[in-house]
Simulated scan of single mutants.
Amino acid sequence: MSQLDQASDEIDAIPVKNESATEKRALSRIERRLDDEDLKHPGVQKMILDRMDVAEEKNESLEKFRTDYYEVMQNLAVAKSSLKRMESLDTAQSTMLGVGCLVLGYVPTAWGNWPLTIIATVAGLGLVSGSFLSKRSNQ
């Protein structure tokens, strides 16, 4: 194997610095530990209150996402259940149509034997009507 075959996908990658939201803020590099003397200043108190307001706003928006997520998951479960029901009805309908066609195709062969002809005709009509009923309830 040559060196090119063994090269990773990241050979031409350009490293990008990941800047978090705290690094973009104006006061992100200021000492974060506050003692009792610092907490007495009104400017510090106002900055703390501002940070709390921002955190509360983010919390409220995230709570909306949480409720939307559970609502979507509930709707998805209902849709999956409905899809499963529709698929099973479709399978039953296809089976009934296939068997009904086979039975109706067998009727001319059994034409001389009246009991067999009557049974095949009734079975074929039952299967075809069951297929139509299945299709109607599937909609």
Results as ranks from 00 to 15, higher is better:
Lys84Pro: 01
Asp35Ser: 12
Leu89Asp: 02
Trp111Cys: 03
Met52His: 13
Ser131Glu: 04
Val16Ala: 11
Arg25Val: 02
Met47Asn: 06
Lys46Ser: 12
Met96Asn: 02
Lys135Thr: 04
Thr95Ser: 07
Arg85Met: 04
Tyr69Cys: 09
Ala77Lys: 06
Leu116Lys: 03
Glu31Arg: 10
Ile118Phe: 05
Ser81Thr: 12
Asn18Ser: 06
Thr67Lys: 15
Met96Trp: 02
Ser82Thr: 15
Leu49Tyr: 05
Pro108Ser: 03
Glu87Asp: 15
Ser129Glu: 08
Tyr106Ser: 11
Trp114Pro: 11
Asp50Leu: 12
Lys24Thr: 06
Ala13Trp: 05
Val103Pro: 00
Asn113Arg: 11
Glu31Tyr: 05
Ser88Phe: 13
Thr91Tyr: 02
Arg29Gln: 12
Glu63Ile: 02
Val16Glu: 14
Cys101Asp: 14
Ile119His: 10
Val99Lys: 07
Ala26Ile: 12
Thr91Val: 08
Phe132Lys: 05
Val44Leu: 02
Leu102Gln: 13
Leu76Thr: 13
Lys84Gly: 08
Thr109Lys: 03
Asn18Phe: 05
Tyr106Asn: 09
Lys46Phe: 06
Ser94Thr: 08
Arg33Tyr: 11
Trp114Met: 11
Arg136Asp: 02
Ser20His: 07
Gly130Asn: 06
Arg25Gln: 14
Leu116Met: 14
Lys58Asp: 04
Glu87Gly: 09
Gly43Ala: 12
Arg66Ala: 11
Ser134Trp: 01
Leu102His: 11
Leu102Ala: 15
Arg25Ser: 10
Glu57Ser: 13
Val107His: 05
Glu57Asn: 09
Ile118His: 08
Gly112Glu: 12
Gln93Lys: 11
Glu56Asn: 03
Thr22Ala: 09
Thr67Val: 15
Lys58Met: 03
Val122Cys: 07
Gly100Cys: 04
Ser28Cys: 05
Val107Asn: 04
Leu127Trp: 01
Glu19Ser: 06
Pro42Leu: 00
Arg33His: 08
Lys17His: 15
Gly43Ser: 12
Ser134Lys: 09
Tyr69Trp: 09
Ile118Glu: 14
Glu56Lys: 08
Arg85His: 07
Cys101Ser: 13
Pro108Val: 04
Asn75Asp: 15
Leu39Lys: 04
Ala79Phe: 08
Glu57Asp: 11
Val128Pro: 01
Ala55Thr: 01
Glu56Val: 15
Gly124Glu: 01
Glu37Leu: 07
Pro15Glu: 12
Asn113Thr: 14
Ser134Glu: 04
Glu60Pro: 00
Gly98Lys: 14
Phe65Met: 11
Asn75Glu: 15
Leu133Glu: 11
Leu104Pro: 00
Glu31Ile: 02
Ile14Leu: 12
Lys24Val: 06
Leu27Ala: 13
Ser129Pro: 07
Thr95Met: 10
Ser129Tyr: 12
Leu39Trp: 02
Val54Asp: 01
Leu125Pro: 00
